[in-house]
Simulated assay, not measured.
Amino acid sequence: MNANSLRGVLLVTLAYALVGASFTANSLLGDYPYAGGQALRYAAACLLLLPLLGGRRGLAPLRLLTARHWVRLAALAAVGMVGFNLAVLAAERTAEPAVPGVLVGCAPVVVAVLVPLAEGRRPARAVLYGALLVAAGALAVQGWGRTDLAGIGYSVAALAGEVGFTVLAVPVLRVLGPKLLTAVVCGIGAAESALLGLAVDGTEFLRTPTAVEAGALVWQAALATVVGFVLFYMGVQRIGVERATLYTGAIPVAAALSAALVGTAAFGLPQAAGALLVGAGAALGTGLFTRRTPTSVTPAAPAAPSAVAVQDDAGGAGDESGAAVPRQVPVAG
């Protein structure tokens, strides 16, 4: 693996670890209106990013977006951010939190199969086998819990949201770069959350948060969203969407570690074994210990951007290196 790919691995791993650690903060927002909390989080993240974009020059790539790009961005925010969190909340009404967590942990397998098939090529064996190990590791870390058919259905919807967050972003990432893409989808996500809140809760979808809730929202906006999203998309630029998704397994591992640190859960032998499986699967799928990056990283044709590492824009149009990954963070109970 070359230095650029290794840097991408580190960026994606850190991004997913921030998301996993945020699950502890999410438990502090159980009494805050869902849509209002998401609206505040994404609006704050968008405002935090604006000064980092470099003024009008940093916003210039927006002129390159077509109507199809804007539809894709709206779908990314609706499916991969607002919808993902809503699906997790709905699943946890009748299922234990481990159930949606395990199914979301299968995202690397889905991406490893669907993305190559959509581009007319075979899935890379190393990536597929690594994805299976990552999914098994996520199951070992989180275990399985009580559920019903509705819980399974909403968990599958959360899995679709996780996949959509990554796959839908890739073509737009080439145009906007990590920072501007994150700012745009956060702005759209804030608007969609506000509309959802008005439709469901009326004017009561927002209220003044307590000091604890405000701290949790700041963590989500500044670290899990601004830092996490930008680092994730920067990593996707370097190692491609299929290999970046392998590091989804860092989410349950980081969540288990953070819960153990604050004393709300124990980190035992199953969690340690699962963490080793996640690491082994990610290393296998990424080619971490090989001298050369697997040949499938190089595109067979330039029309397959999602399967390859998106190259940095030499013109500097908002690209600083390209969720959730997180990424979006569910309000876990």
Results as ranks from 00 to 15, higher is better:
Ala250Gly: 00
Val325Met: 13
Ala324Gly: 12
Ala307Thr: 15
Arg63Tyr: 15
Val212Phe: 01
Leu86Gly: 01
Tyr247Trp: 11
Asn4Pro: 10
Phe229Glu: 01
Glu192Thr: 10
Ser193Gly: 02
Asp312Ile: 15
Thr264Asp: 08
Pro302Arg: 12
Ser27His: 11
Ser27Gln: 13
Gln38Lys: 10
Arg238Thr: 08
Tyr129Ile: 12
Ala157Asn: 09
Gly137Arg: 07
Gly215Cys: 01
Val88Ile: 09
Val115Phe: 15
Ala124Arg: 09
Ala21Ile: 05
Leu62Pro: 07
Thr286Leu: 06
Ala124Leu: 08
Gly151Leu: 03
Val170Asp: 04
Leu18Ile: 09
Tyr32Lys: 00
Leu181Thr: 05
Leu180Ser: 04
Gln311Met: 07
Val262Arg: 14
Ala250Arg: 00
Gly30Thr: 12
Asp312Met: 11
Ala221Tyr: 01
His69Leu: 08
Ala77Ile: 14
Ser5Thr: 11
Ala260Asp: 14
Gly164Arg: 01
Pro116Tyr: 07
Arg327Ile: 13
Gln38Tyr: 05
Asp313Trp: 08
Val227Glu: 12
Ala283Met: 05
Ala307Cys: 11
Glu242Asn: 11
Gly143Tyr: 04
Asp319Ala: 03
Arg146Ile: 11
Leu62Tyr: 02
Val115His: 13
Pro252Asn: 08
Ser321Ala: 11
Gly318Arg: 03
Pro61Thr: 09
Leu18Tyr: 15
Leu49Pro: 00
Gly315Phe: 07
Ser306Gly: 08
Asp312Phe: 06
Arg63Glu: 10
Ile188Met: 04
Trp144Lys: 11
Val111Met: 06
Ala282Met: 14
Arg41Tyr: 00
Leu217Phe: 02
Ala60Gly: 06
Val310Arg: 01
Pro61Gly: 05
Gln220Thr: 05
Tyr32Gly: 02
Leu276Tyr: 02
Ala283Ser: 08
Ala272Gly: 10
Ala244Gln: 03
Leu132Trp: 13
Val111Lys: 02
Gly130Pro: 07
Gly101Phe: 02
Ala304Asn: 14
Ala301Gly: 15
Gly164Lys: 04
Ala21Gln: 02
Leu28Gly: 04
Leu168Ser: 02
Ser321Thr: 12
Met81Thr: 09
Thr295Asn: 04
Gln237Lys: 01
Gly287His: 01
